[in-house]
Amino acid sequence: MESEQSAAAIVDAVREIYGYDFVPLHRPVFAGAEKANLAACIDSNFVSSVGEKVTAFEASIAAFTGSRFAVATVNGTAALHVGLILAGVERGDEVISQALTFVATCNAISYIGAHPVFVDVDRETMGLGATALKQFLSATVRLTDGRAYNRVTGRRIAACVPMHSFGLACEIEEIADLCAGYGIPVVEDAAESLGSYVGKRHTGTFGLIGTYSFNGNKIITTGGGGMIVTDDEIIARRAKHLTTTAKTPHPYEFVHDEVGFNYRMPNLNAALGCAQMDQLPGFLRLKRAVADYYHDRLADIGAGFIKEREGTRANYWLNALCLPDAAARDAVLNACNDAGVMTRPVWRLMSSLPMFRDCMHDGLEVSRWLEKRIVNIPSSVPDAVIADGPLGPYLA
C-alpha cells in the first residue's frame, strides 16, 4: 500500500510538470536554430566530418567546460575508447572503474583488450568512491619504476575511469589526487554531466582527459555524438588524428601512419550541437527547477531524492530516487510505467554481466545496495513554464 501511494505521488508530480499522456524519461528539445543550422549544412554540401559546424561545436564545448581543446567524435563510447588509448592503456592492462555504470564504460575498456577492475561507489554521489579507491590502491597496488601494478594479477593498472552518475559530480578531486600518487592517469567519464561543477570547475576537466556524450537522451544532443576534452595539446592533436583514420595531411594522397578510427563527428550532427549549446544555460535552469520541485514535492513518500553534494552543482540530467528496498523499487517501477510515466531502475552492475563476471572487484557493498533501490524519474526540459505553474516558484 505504501509503495502504491509513493507511485501515485510520483505520477501526480510528473504530470503536473509535463502533462503528456505518456511521459518519457528524457526527450530532446529542439527550440532554437537546429533546423536553420541543418539547412545551412545541406546548402554548403559539407555534411560529413569536414565542416565549419564541427569546428564551432568543438570550440563551444571547450569554452563552456574551460578546456583548452575539444575533439568531436561520433558518440561518447568512441570518445572514451580513444581517450583510453591516448592515456596509454594497452592490451592486457587493467583499468579501474565502477560496476555501477552504463555498459559503454566497460565496453570502451574492452575494445583495447584491457580488463576492468571494479571499485565501489560512494552512496551520496553514486560515482566511484574516494574512500573505497584509497583502500583498494593501498591494499592491491605496488609501484615499480613509477608504474602501478596489481599485486594479485600482476597486470599494470594503466588508467582510472570514474563516472559522474546522472550528472552528479563524483569525488573527482580526491580521486585525481589519489591516482596521481600512483602514477595512474584519470580519464573522466563525464558523459552525463555537461553543465555539472565541483566548485567553479567543470566535470571532465580534472583528469588527463574527459569525455562527454550527446546521445538523444542527454542534456544536449547531436543525435549521436561525443567529445574528448583535454588541456594537453599533443593529446588533442593525436585525438583528432586517431579519430580521422590516422590519415596524414595531404591534398590527395591516402597515407595512414597507424591504426586509426573513423570516429569524427559529421557536420550535420555538429550543426544540431551548436544550436543546442545556445540553449544549454536555459536547459540547466529549467532542469534545476524540476529537481528542486521533485525534492520538495516528494519529500514525504519514503523515497530519498538524490541531491548534489555540498560544494558541487549538478546538471540534474536524470533525477533519481532511493527507495527503501528492492520490493518497493519494483512496485514503484511497475505502477509508474503502467500509468504511462516512464521510470527505470539503475543499471545492472557490470560485475553481474556475463562478459565482466570474472573481473576483479572489492566486494561492491554500496553498489549492490544502490542497485536494489535507485529509480530514475522523468527529467526532460519542460516545453514551457507559465508563471503560476508548478515550477514558477523555483524559477523566480
Rank of each mutant, 00 (worst) to 15 (best):
M360P: 06
A159W: 06
G154R: 03
L268D: 08
G51I: 11
R313P: 08
M227I: 08
P249N: 15
A132F: 05
V29N: 03
G199A: 10
D358K: 04
A327C: 00
D300L: 03
D231F: 00
G199I: 13
N37L: 00
R156S: 10
F69M: 01
G210V: 06
K307W: 05
R373S: 13
L286D: 11
D21G: 09
D231V: 01
L333A: 07
A63C: 01
I219C: 02
P249Y: 15
N337I: 01
S380D: 10
A320L: 09
A327T: 10
E174L: 02
G204Y: 12
C106D: 07
A384D: 15
L143Y: 06
S6Q: 08
T203K: 01
A190F: 11
A159H: 13
I85R: 14
D232E: 15
K307V: 08
I220R: 15
T125N: 09
E258Q: 13
A384Y: 12
T222L: 06
D388H: 13
K218G: 04
N319W: 01
E188G: 04
A78T: 14
T230F: 10
S110D: 14
Y293M: 04
P393Y: 07
G92P: 14
G216E: 15
T312K: 06
A132D: 10
E171W: 03
S60T: 07
I184R: 08
R368F: 01
G302V: 09
T221W: 03
D122P: 05
A289C: 04
K247M: 12
R344S: 12
K247T: 14
I172F: 04
P390H: 07
R123S: 11
G216N: 15
F46K: 15
A108F: 02
A291F: 05
T131K: 12
R155C: 05
H164M: 12
P281L: 13
V95E: 11
G32Q: 10
S67C: 05
E4K: 06
M277S: 13
A236F: 07
T221E: 11
A331Y: 07
Q279F: 14
V385R: 04
L86S: 10
G51F: 14
A326G: 04
V74K: 14
D120Q: 11
V121D: 08
I96F: 08
E94M: 02
T205D: 02
M265T: 12
N319L: 03
I157Y: 13
E174G: 01
D145Y: 00
V255M: 01
D231Y: 03
E4H: 02
D292C: 05
L298R: 08
E371A: 15
R156C: 07
A104Y: 06
T312F: 03
G195L: 04
G304S: 09
F261V: 02
V141H: 08
C160W: 02
G129Q: 14
R329T: 10
L80G: 12
K35V: 03
R238F: 02
D21L: 01
F118A: 10
I85L: 11
T243G: 07
D358I: 00
P162T: 14
V95Q: 09
W317C: 04
P393D: 14
N334A: 06
R91Y: 00
K134A: 09
A7Y: 00
E124R: 12
G181A: 02
